[in-house]
């Protein structure tokens, strides 16, 4: 196993730490995204490690819900672990972990270069290490990308996921509300962990309807929470036969035949 503890025991320092995140570790659907990222890392031969059992929640949902104590308890103990291993660079498949590690940990003593997996994929495509060849063809397939709030508006990462999709030679269609104007899937701010307040409609249904209206056959996502919300939306609207919700890492793996 490639856990950071093992790597460190043999006095080595991995190039990159893959921060899996809670959804990526425990949610069955998100585990598939995690495996896709791992496959990409293996495929291009990046020397990486995971924290495994030493990884804890970044504290993001606690912080957004208003529980700053719990957030900082998680943050400070995570920072202790990461600094203990001398971690320099982190990639994660979760925009919430990405945002927290990148923006909120530095003031608490955790200074790392943090990238999202779509940024890594973008970089690998630019370096020629990933080509959309040797696997499934997405040529001419209509794909729409749903901007995750914590990747898009929160950190202005709009182009990396789109560049990864353009490499697929697919027909990238935009939803009415995209990029800075993108509509939330409804999961952020710890909403995923509670019942919604009374209203007329579920947010994920509103967003899924918009994605379906784009005529896309694939809804691309870059966040495990958005994935859950959009899949639920597709299910609720009974479009599972027509439309797939896939993470950009999964699409990349498929296109490269990894």
């Amino acid at each position: 196993m490639f856990s950071l503890a093992d790597v460190a025991a043999s006095n080595k320092q991995p190039e990159l730490v893959f921060w899996v995140g809670c959804a990526g570790s425990f949610d069955e659907r998100a585990q598939r995204i995690t495996r896709s990222v791992a496959k990409i890392l293996d495929h291009v031969g990046i020397d990486y490690a995971v924290l495994g059992t030493e990884e804890s929640c970044t504290g993001d949902p606690a912080k957004r819900a208003g529980n700053e104590f719990l957030f900082q308890m998680m943050a400070l103990s995570n920072i202790q672990v990461l600094n203990g291993y001398g971690v320099k660079k982190i990639v994660t498949a979760c925009p919430h972990c990405f945002n927290t590690l990148k923006n909120e940990y530095p003031e608490l003593g955790g200074n790392y270069e943090v990238i999202h997996h779509t940024q890594l994929i973008q970089q690998l495509i630019r370096e020629g290490k990933l080509r959309a060849a040797g696997g499934e063809s997405f040529h001419g397939k209509k794909i729409t990308y749903h901007d995750a709030c914590y990747l898009g508006r929160a950190n202005r990462v709009y182009e990396a996921p789109r560049e990864a999709l353009k490499a697929l030679d697919a027909d990238l269609v935009e939803m009415k509300r995209s990029r800075a104007n993108g509509l939330c899937c409804g999961a952020g701010g710890a909403q995923l962990f509670k019942e919604p307040e009374p209203g007329k409609k579920e947010i994920n249904v509103e967003r899924t309807e918009e994605a379906l209206a784009s005529g896309a056959q694939v809804i691309a996502s870059a966040c495990p929470f958005c994935m859950t919300m959009l899949r639920d939306g597709v299910k609720q609207l009974e479009k599972e036969q027509e439309v797939e919700v896939l993470d950009i890492a999964e699409l990349t793996v498929r296109a490269n035949g990894i």
Binding site: M1, S3, V20, C22, G24, S25, F26, D27, Q31, T34, R35, V50, L51, G52, T53, E55, S56, C57, G59, P61, A62, A65, G66, N67, L70, M73, M74, A190, F193, K194, E195
Partner: peptide, 29 residues
Amino acid sequence: SPQGWSAMFNHIEHNAAPWQFSPADRLNW
């Protein structure tokens, strides 16, 4: 806090994840 959040806080506090999973299972993927 809403019920769901109280549970989420509890899980994070006790098993370091917002759901009721054991840290030992973090590599199950």
